[in-house]
């Protein structure tokens, strides 16, 4: 039987209460939805002395649109299934929504929060890839104040993020983008229940000029979320050069043959997904 080890449980309803409480414990676990965190407890791979339920913090349960800054802030406590009805209709949000609607199944999306999906650092998580592609920032709070980190720089290695003890992910923020095409593709294998590759891309094309194009990848093949810089390309007829660059990117990644497949297979999957994404965002 799987049962969590013993711990204290506290529910926090105010952000300042969180900062006051979190320092009193040596190994706190912060949960909003549960799901993966509860599973890790049941597997006893984490043994926190306290579980802090932040789902009641209303400040983190908001979606804010700042029209002046053209910016969206999604609070950590927002559930994945809620995004559909609250996100604005710009292209960046569209890509984020595409990612959010493919997380797990309906029940997991009802339980899982935006914060959880961003904080875990599992290479199979969806939101980080889309957020990295649109250039979103993680908004991190602590007693000392607030800092922002680009989502693409949040992940150190699988299950390891740049968040420190005493810090809390308040949410993510990004600039709204208009008139972009988006693409979100992933390759799932039932055995070992994993994504070999996940690719998110977004581009603005006018005639034959590429005004802006961004891409991020993740999945077990690559281990963590990585942003790929494609700013040098400005014409859609450079598609072969773009693909060459992606080819080079994939071939230069260090990968190994492991339970998730051979290097040859992983590269094939990544490139297939990337080329598909490029075709989708650049097609007329």
């Amino acid at each position: 039987m799987k049962a969590p080890p013993s711990f204290d449980f506290i529910r926090i309803n105010k952000l300042n209460e969180f900062y006051e409480n979190v320092d009193r414990y040596s190994s706190p676990l912060i949960i909003s939805g549960g799901t993966v965190a509860v599973l890790m407890l049941k597997n006893r791979v984490i043994r926190p002395d306290v579980v802090i339920d932040i789902s009641g913090i209303e400040e983190l349960n908001v979606l804010k649109k700042d029209k002046e800054k053209n910016e969206v802030f999604i609070g950590s406590n927002i559930k994945l299934h809620e995004l559909k009805s609250i996100l604005p209709d710009d292209s960046a949000s569209e890509l984020i929504l595409k990612a959010a609607t493919t997380v797990g199944d309906i029940a997991i999306r009802s339980m899982g929060s935006v914060g959880g999906n961003v904080c875990l650092g599992d290479p199979g998580n969806d939101l980080p890839v889309a957020l990295a592609a649109v250039g979103a920032n993680a908004v991190v709070g602590s007693r000392e104040g607030i800092r922002t980190v680009p989502v693409s720089e949040c992940y150190v290695k699988p299950f390891k993020t740049v968040l420190k003890k005493g810090e809390i992910l308040l949410g993510v923020s990004y600039k709204m983008l208009y008139g972009y095409r988006t693409s979100y593709n992933k390759f799932f294998i039932n055995f070992l229940d994993h994504y070999v590759g996940i690719v998110a891309a977004i581009a603005k094309v006018e005639g034959i000029s590429i005004k802006d194009m961004r891409m991020a990848v993740s999945g077990e093949a690559i281990g963590t979320t990585v942003k790929i810089d494609l700013a040098e390309f400005s014409k859609i007829d450079e598609i072969n050069a773009i693909k060459d660059k992606l080819n080079k990117f994939v071939n230069e990644r260090s990968m190994s043959d492991d339970r998730f497949g051979t290097v040859k297979f992983k590269k094939k999957v990544l490139l297939t997904l990337m080329f598909q994404a490029i075709d989708e965002v650049l097609k007329a």
Partner: peptide, 19 residues
């Protein structure tokens, strides 16, 4: 399927590759 030390690779029901 097992790893090189003889431990089953799947850790969950989903990971056994069921439909």
């Amino acid at each position: 399927i097992y790893d090189s030390k003889g431990k089953p690779l799947p850790e969950t029901m989903a990971a056994t590759g069921i439909a």
